[in-house]
Simulated assay, not measured.
Amino acid sequence: MTDRYAVIGQPISHSKSPTIHNAFAQATHQDLRYEAVEVPAGTLADALQRLHGDGFLGVNITLPHKADAPMLCEMISERAQLAGAVNTLIRSDAGWRGDNTDGEGLIRDLQRLAYAIKDQHVLVLGSGGAVRGMIAPLLAEQPASLTVSNRSPWTPEKLAEQFRTVGTVTPRTHATLKGDRFDLIINATSAGHAGVMPRIPAGVLAKGGACYDLTYGTAHAPFRKWAEAQGATRIADGLGMLVEQAAAAFALWRGVRPETETVLASLRPSQGA
């Protein structure tokens, strides 16, 4: 019987995860089928029970469920516990084990692009579930500083407290970034999906600085335009992170880590960036 896996969220029809994972399966000669399943907010518990009953062996979780998933796992990995967010579920006899591959995916893609992190001043825009998964891996790369900024101060301050045993996170609102300079700016907001750029002061990107966006395709356009206006020497979208975090999840499920360059190259023409 073909093994079954899925990505769940809402909306989900646009997801590239089925294309990515089915390509991984073909490349590694794995007999599996990966599909997208629409799961509205507030119905995660019922959906996971149903998927378990239907025999699914693993599940990827995206918006709006990442922060709710840990409470529905019988156990979660140390990195998922630290992040307070789960994006990957592994079937157990009784339920699900949770993990978080977002940070691993980000770091692997930054390394693929030869983006420097060590001794750099790094700014992360946003404070959602993906950011929580990124903070510890970013700190492990020993940046000179790591700042997390949001429109309001509450969530960045909460994150700084949450990760204080791992390293120093400087909380900021977008407005209070004025006068600061960063070597690497990572956009982890969803603003691009609405066709806009977070309102942050001009001049925060240091001379020679680089920019990275977790979004891709048309959602990446506003941040790219802003980065170009700020004189960024390098600008990248998040398609590589999507593929790399998927490869990390695939390895958890199947015990083999697929090669990612071929899959990433195949996605480029279809996603328009």
Results as ranks from 00 to 15, higher is better:
148 V>N: 07
149 S>F: 02
149 S>R: 01
150 N>S: 15
153 P>R: 05
155 T>S: 14
157 E>G: 11
157 E>V: 10
158 K>G: 02
160 A>E: 13
160 A>I: 11
162 Q>D: 13
163 F>W: 08
164 R>Q: 15
165 T>S: 15
166 V>Q: 14
168 T>P: 09
171 P>S: 09
171 P>I: 08
172 R>H: 15
172 R>C: 09
174 H>K: 05
174 H>S: 06
175 A>K: 10
177 L>T: 04
178 K>S: 13
179 G>S: 06
179 G>A: 06
181 R>V: 10
181 R>D: 08
182 F>W: 02
183 D>M: 01
183 D>A: 01
183 D>I: 00
185 I>R: 00
185 I>S: 03
188 A>L: 02
188 A>D: 06
191 A>V: 11
191 A>C: 12
191 A>N: 05
193 H>V: 14
193 H>R: 13
193 H>W: 14
193 H>T: 14
195 G>P: 01
196 V>A: 07
197 M>N: 09
197 M>T: 08
197 M>F: 08
202 A>M: 11
204 V>F: 11
207 K>H: 14
208 G>E: 11
210 A>G: 11
210 A>I: 02
211 C>P: 08
211 C>Q: 01
213 D>W: 04
213 D>G: 13
220 H>P: 00
221 A>Q: 09
222 P>F: 09
222 P>R: 06
223 F>M: 09
223 F>N: 01
225 K>H: 14
225 K>I: 11
226 W>K: 07
227 A>W: 05
227 A>S: 15
228 E>W: 13
233 T>K: 12
233 T>S: 07
234 R>V: 04
236 A>Q: 06
236 A>D: 01
237 D>L: 03
238 G>I: 05
239 L>W: 05
240 G>L: 06
241 M>V: 10
241 M>I: 12
242 L>H: 07
244 E>P: 01
245 Q>C: 04
245 Q>I: 06
246 A>F: 03
247 A>G: 04
248 A>T: 06
248 A>S: 13
250 F>I: 01
